[in-house]
Design a protein around this nucleic acid. Structure first.
Lengths: 208, 208
DNA sequence: CAAACATACGAACGATCGTTCGTTCGCGCG
DNA sequence: CGCGCGAACGAACGATCGTTCGTATGTTTG
């Protein structure tokens, strides 16, 4: 019947990246409309199938969110571990951390948007695990600032506060529209690094 | 029957701030769980009434969101206009803008959280109006940076980018747990101002 | 060729959604 | 006293939610 025409397209991609495709559609929807406001039927619609068929690829709606959030979380922490192991001056490690964070961020801005804004819809115990990973990553940045302060490279302050603020700042880039190429990302990293290290004043600030 | 006991409590507050109370409960729920994930029945439950009774005070769920978002938006833009009219050096106006923004932010962190994160669930034409107000506020900060650059007080850069980043940074404080008193807010303002003007480096950054 | 498997489907489940309706009840005002 | 009105309620509406089930079909494997 209609299976000749309808099944033709799916069959043309035997067991190909259909699952990954659905995940990327889900990422876009979760990012643009939010997890709670996205229905499985809508996800199915943009995926070109019916809602029940989604469950041949993912066991639940939350599984989709889980994969997106933990996929990004794992990428961030493993990058952090790689940089932490580098034998470089602390300010260079910070510059590297900024650049790598931005690189990861711009590799999939929508996934990062979900990672940043929708993780709270995870349920236990995943929620606790996620928070733990997130805390690890914050601690990595805090550690850089603390180390820099001990060496006198950075001015004194609350390292954890500085780390969180820096992450907050960079993550804001998920809202930008245009994708950035490799060079533009490196330049943006410089921009963040310079702002963070030197501020915006032409001379040291002097206000009571 | 039960009306003797049930109606007693509501009657004790004749036509008092019931409406405002519901709005504040809604703010807390929208902030903690998100607009889409908050049901009218849950809001009614924490308000101590049944769901249909909510419609004696608000004509729809979105009306609640509308009031919260535009309440904050109006407060922010009117503050901006007040500061813009001040006869002060641009860096002092920036410091004032930071402090007043934080003051407003900490006057109701939950409402700001909704203002920042849940506005996208507004529908047209409110959505366009909101974006316009938001843009006005960003332009106010961008204007400060641009003015500072023309005077040579700030280093050159993209003023709109700087403005958005600064707002992003400050708005992150909605996630902090503890409320801050007047002095603590002023100190935090100084902290932001110093970070923004002078960065974190003990000496000017020097990395290729 | 047949059995097993992956993947799609329509139908439908119970739950919950935002909201409407008709009604009741108590308070304040004439 | 009586009358209206704000504010509450239970019942219920249609819609939509995430998900399950039985089934059909096409591909892969033995």
């Amino acid at each position: 019947m209609k299976s000749d025409t309808l099944a033709a397209t799916p069959a043309s991609a035997p067991h190909s990246g259909r699952r990954a495709l659905i995940a990327s559609f889900a990422t876009e929807l979760f990012h643009r409309k939010g997890y709670a406001a996205t229905s499985m039927r809508e996800l199915a619609s943009v995926s070109g199938i019916e809602a029940p068929s989604l469950y041949n690829h993912f066991s639940s709606k939350e599984t989709l969110l889980h994969e997106i959030c933990f996929g990004m979380a794992d990428a961030f922490v493993s990058t952090a571990q790689r940089i932490a192991a580098m034998d470089l001056p602390v300010e260079n490690r910070l510059a590297r951390a900024i650049e790598e964070h931005l690189r990861l961020l711009f590799s999939d801005r929508e996934a990062v948007g979900v990672f940043v804004n929708e993780w709270r819809h995870l349920s236990e115990p995943s929620l606790q695990t996620f928070k733990s990973l997130r805390s690890d990553y914050e601690q990595f940045f805090a550690g850089l600032f603390q180390e820099g302060m001990q060496q006198g490279v950075f001015t004194q302050g609350d390292p954890l506060w500085l780390g969180r603020q820096l992450l907050l700042l960079m993550n804001g880039s998920v809202h930008s529209t245009a994708p950035l190429d490799e060079d533009a990302i490196a330049q943006l990293g410089q921009r963040f690094f310079n702002l963070w290290m030197g501020g915006v004043a032409s001379r040291p600030a002097q206000i009571s």
